[in-house]
């Protein structure tokens, strides 16, 4: 399944179950508050994109959602099915142990789980099957990213978090990465993506969360955000929201 349109034509998210729920999430480092009372729900089978200027705490929020960071206040709750591996993770610069082949690397991660994984199928899905015997240090940037994606879905976790999956990639590869996020969502996975590539976000995201000034400045499907701010695309929404000095309360548009 591939996307031809430039606008989001995916059906609006219906009552899919919540997989991750953040309630009143706050993170503070000594004097500095990074996140202030964030409420957020991630649903199965959807792509949730996290956007916002650098330093607004996107990575912090992701780490909180992953459970790798303790919130100062509030909590993060995993509400999905009880599985071995609840959340998969694609870090911003995926790197793998050198001297191992692509297949060996994936097999290693698979071996950390009880449930068997069909590594062949996994590699095929990310178009890496042909290079399965190549050492990872010989992969191009794009292929490494693809391998990272493959790693993140080992064991079919109900939720996956991609940290800037398109960054540093050429447009084709970047699109491919987001394609995969859509495919995953189609299969029911809750995908959380953070990105600076607003065009791709616009095309593939079901929900966009705009982080600004310690809070969620805007949240909702891309089309609706455009409508709400009376602008044509997400850039405008972005500018509109980040231009305001004092943040208003969450303008959450409910369906």
């Amino acid at each position: 399944m591939s996307k031809q349109q430039s606008t989001n034509t995916r059906p609006a998210a219906t009552s899919q179950e919540a997989v991750l729920r953040a309630t009143d999430l706050t993170k503070q480092y000594s004097e500095l508050t990074v996140l202030d009372s964030i409420d957020l729900t991630v649903h199965a089978g959807s792509v949730t994109a996290l956007i916002g200027p650098n330093g607004t705490g996107k990575t912090t929020l992701l780490r909180l959602l992953l459970g790798h960071l303790e919130p100062t206040a509030g909590n993060v709750e995993y509400a999905g099915p009880a599985v071995e591996r609840p959340i998969g993770y694609l870090p911003q610069q995926p790197a793998f142990r050198p001297h191992f082949t692509v297949e060996e690397t994936i097999s290693f991660y698979a071996s950390l789980l009880e449930t068997p994984t069909d590594t062949k199928e996994l590699l095929t899905q990310v178009d890496l099957y042909d290079v399965r015997n190549r050492p990872v240090e010989a992969l191009s940037g794009g292929m490494t990213r693809l391998l990272g994606i493959a790693q993140s879905v080992v064991g079919n976790p109900p939720a996956v978090i991609f940290d800037e999956p398109a960054s540093g990639l050429d447009p084709t590869m970047g699109t491919k990465a987001f394609e995969i996020t859509a495919q995953l969502a189609e299969r029911g996975t809750a995908v959380i993506v953070s990105s600076h590539d607003l065009a791709l976000v616009e095309r593939y995201a079901d929900t966009v969360i705009l982080l600004h000034d310690k809070q969620i400045a805007a949240q909702g499907p891309p089309q609706q955000l455009c409508q709400t701010h009376s602008v044509a695309d997400l850039w405008e929404v972005y500018d509109a929201v980040t231009a305001t000095e004092t943040p208003q309360t969450n303008t959450e548009v409910t369906q």
Partner: peptide, 16 residues
């Protein structure tokens, strides 16, 4: 070396 590579965070998702 695993730390520098960021692999520790990834490993954590496998509940190691």
């Amino acid at each position: 070396s695993d730390l520098e590579r960021g692999e520790l965070a990834v490993l954590k998702t496998y509940d190691v």
